[in-house]
Amino acid sequence: MLAREQSLPSEREAPIRGRALTKLYRVGEIEVRALRGVDVDLFAAELVVLLGPSGSGKSTLLNILGGLDAPTSGHAYFRDQEITAFNQSQLTRYRRDHVGFVFQFYNLMPSLTAEENVSLVTEIAARAMPAADALDLVGLGDRRAHFPAQLSGGEQQRVAIARAIAKQPDLLLCDEPTGALDSKTGILVLEAIERINRELGTTTVLITHNAIIADMADRVLALADGRIVDVRENASRRSARDLSW
């Protein structure tokens, strides 16, 4: 396990960067400006919470940084490479080797067991850990042979987290990971994310509109109307276990 560096984010290099990102959607006659010139740096091993109301541009930003969506203008970089200049197969490669995704609705393969869902990713990634280890990390070592239909919502989401981190990604992107869960189960899931961030040193971005969750972050970026309107650094992170809503 990597030891967590204790220095402040601002003094370290930012492996993931966004510069002047804008995104325009056309929905029929209406033009939607999802991002209006966003600059963002994500530092190694930090846990960032993106906070903001619906339509503020959180997901769009996450999708661009994760290589799922292209900005209308602006650039995004991973280390010394420009993500926004990647072609389709380079994007696939980037997602496969460097990015882990956790979805609001888990998106597990119903036809595969918990362990097989994780293996799905470890089989194709460059430097994956054993699927069983990833499930141990999220506390589901004893549920590995269960199919999604046999797991609770919280368990399914933790399998999804195990699936996302088993490849040892450089960037873990979680879009409303607790959105479909009750608070008790949600905290279990957040604990898993927190543990990954601490123990593996994975740069983690967590989208939520639940302000309480922001307390577990190193930094909180508040978005509104397609812009970052506030950046707050938490002097000390609260443990997910201590959160409640």
């Binding site: 994760g66 799922l68 389709q88 197969s89 696939t92 490669r93 997602r95 496969r96 080797d97 990015v99 995704f101 979805f103 998106n107 393969m109 119903p110 799905l120 990713v121 194709i124 990634a125 699936r163 490849k167």
Partner: peptide, 16 residues
């Protein structure tokens, strides 16, 4: 579609 889309996000190629 959702399952396959998820796999694409997870880094599976179109061929896969």
């Amino acid at each position: 579609a959702r399952e396959l889309g998820t796999l694409r996000i997870l880094g599976f190629t179109r061929f896969e």
